[in-house]
């Protein structure tokens, strides 16, 4: 466990340094060091770096990296929670319709509320929560109160919001609104700012802490319903707790940067490979791994070509083959996916 953390933190540090340095405006390692020493109030006698570089570093790059790390952590942890809650290694943050709800909300804001400050973020957040609430209400109408009913309700609500999104895309002005909608749906940190950090990071942080505190109960939620009930666990109440906390995190993350696909599916599997299935160990590793991975992907997205590559394109290029590898490898190993 200690070895895993040591390697993980070293990789994380390496990725962060690279992310601070790389980009269209390259910043040297020495300058990065000076920035942080100045920020800590030490080494005041060190030479000043150009104002332009300072501005890019503190107002563009740092918030972007902080936001991508937080979003990566939040979405990955939510993925791990959903996989446990639905006892399904293929569950992801999209399972209950949060992502499609956010997409629809963002499209509504882009088409009808362009004048609103933070309109896209607000609408994406609200519709994301609305979609999950609709999923929960639909599932609660069913006589059988199982996790699989929630998944089916999630598919229904996702399909409805996806249909609504398609209608809006059909109506949208192809030269302006449609491009904006598609760009948002692919996900990007191009619009990252300190204000987005302020609205997103505290929510993700509080969510992560809450899920970590009650991580052991999540172990028990992976049991079949009747087994968990027999152990004295109020499964309905705990399910609501994990769904609410995870979805607020997903909604806050997706609302600020758009859809980030595959991340919540693959990162928990990688983390499980290193630290096993116990959630008290799994969730912190998933958070750091997810954050590091998304910072690395974002660095790649803004560095490998003159135009920024949407995040979901890169996460799909990496995630899909990895999932294929996982299935084949697990088949050879004889174990089940997720173990």
């Amino acid at each position: 466990m200690k070895k895993v953390w040591l390697i993980l933190l070293m990789v994380c540090l390496g990725v962060l340094v690279l992310a601070f340095s790389a980009g269209r405006y390259a910043i040297g390692l020495k300058d990065i060091g000076v920035f942080f020493l100045h920020a800590c109030g030490i080494a005041a006698d060190l030479p000043q770096v150009p104002k332009e570089m300072q501005m890019i570093f503190w107002n563009i790059r740092v918030p972007r990296i902080v936001l991508s790390f937080a979003v990566g952590s939040g979405i990955s942890i939510a993925g791990a929670v959903f996989q446990a809650l639905f006892r399904n290694p293929l569950a992801a943050p999209e399972t209950l319709g949060a992502t499609f709800g956010a997409g629809f909300g963002a499209a509504v804001a882009i088409m009808f509320f362009t004048h609103m400050i933070m309109g896209i973020q607000t609408f994406a957040f609200l519709f994301s929560i609305l979609a999950v609430t609709a999923t929960y209400l639909l599932a609660s109408r069913c006589r059988e109160q199982s996790a699989s009913v929630l998944v089916i309700a999630g598919i229904v609500i996702s399909a409805l919001f996806e249909a609504g999104l398609s209608v809006l895309e059909y109506w949208a002005d192809p030269y302006d609104q449609l491009a904006q909608i598609l760009f948002w749906l692919w996900g990007s940190f191009q619009t990252a700012s300190w204000s987005k950090v302020e609205t997103t990071v505290p929510i993700v942080l509080i969510g992560c802490v809450m899920l970590y505190i009650f991580a052991w109960q999540l172990d028990i939620m992976t049991l079949e319903d009747e087994a968990a009930l027999s152990l004295g666990v109020n499964i309905v109440r705990w399910r609501v707790f994990y769904i609410v906390v995870s979805n607020v995190m997903i909604a806050a993350s997706v609302a600020s940067v758009g859809s980030i696909k595959w991340l919540g599916l693959i990162i928990p599997h990688i983390a499980r490979h290193f630290v096993g299935t116990e959630h008290r160990k799994l969730l912190p590793v998933t958070a750091v791994l997810g954050g590091t991975f998304l910072v690395a992907v974002d660095t790649l997205a803004r560095s490998i070509s003159s135009a920024e590559i949407p995040i979901s394109v890169l996460t799909a290029i990496i995630g899909a083959p990895y999932l294929g590898y996982l299935i084949l490898w697990k088949k050879e190993g004889g174990g089940e996916l997720g173990s």
């Binding site: 006892r87 290694p89 992976t222 079949e224 009747e226 087994a227 499980r272 096993g276 997720g338 173990s339």
Partner: peptide
Amino acid sequence: PQSSRMFFGF
């Protein structure tokens, strides 16, 4: 229970 299914590798 009669049989127990565990989906993860606890």
